[in-house]
Design a protein around this nucleic acid. Structure first.
Lengths: 111, 111
DNA sequence: ATAGCATATCGATAACATTCGATATCGTTG
DNA sequence: CAACGATATCGAATGTTATCGATATGCTAT
């Protein structure tokens, strides 16, 4: 209990969209430019730009300009960080909130 | 490439909300009833009911009626499944989409 | 400097999410 | 079976997201 939930909500929102999950998958084995990502999807160029902005602003994806092209890579540090966060909140721990419950049962569970 | 993205979008959307992340964290070390969860948050009872519905419909949380109370537990199988899915799409793999890119560079990267 | 390609931004729209108070349902207990 | 407590559902208000076409910006060649 007491994680920076709000910070992670931004990142998790970024991965809670089918198009963006596909893009992350596409980037998982190497760098791609916007034009190639666009070819693999059925969306408009402006929509892709919108999604890439969300992915790079949440730091899940690194964006580098190369001439008139944009080259994108997956930021594995960030994706691992999200995984670690989610593992953390789903794992049992000391000082857990539920241990303070009022309506505990004899078996030390809540309610 | 070619994961059941849409299926996981539902689950990831379920965890992309601050209130629901808190609830998952609360449930991480044991069972809780709705009333105790409600005490730990600053939302109305109807809003909690809405969030619990999203969490249990996405199978992240198991809901059991016990008399007039509802008892909730975290479904670790499902949370582990989401983690496995996300690890999968963020890890390099064979037959990766990006290997079919048109605009490849000499280093075998895209663009 | 200008024409052309790649990408970003804008404005509109439609769909979806979150919240609440009011009310309904459901189960328990007198 | 009536009253009550716990939870669910409804309807409305408000905010957020995804999408597009049109247009702007920014680079690169010519």
């Amino acid at each position: 209990m007491e994680y920076p939930y709000a910070d992670y909500v931004l990142v998790i929102k970024a991965i809670s969209d089918e198009t963006r999950l596909k893009i992350i998958d596409m980037l998982s084995c190497g760098e791609m430019c916007a034009c190639d990502i666009l070819e693999g999807l059925s969306i408009s160029q402006s929509t892709l730009s919108y999604h890439m902005k969300i992915l790079s602003e949440s730091a899940l994806v690194n964006a580098v300009r190369d001439g008139s092209w944009m080259r994108y890579t997956l930021n594995k540090e960030k994706t691992d960080d999200v995984i670690a966060f989610f593992k953390g909140i789903t794992s049992e721990k000391e000082n857990c909130f539920c241990k303070k419950c009022k309506n505990q049962k004899p078996n030390n569970q809540c309610c």
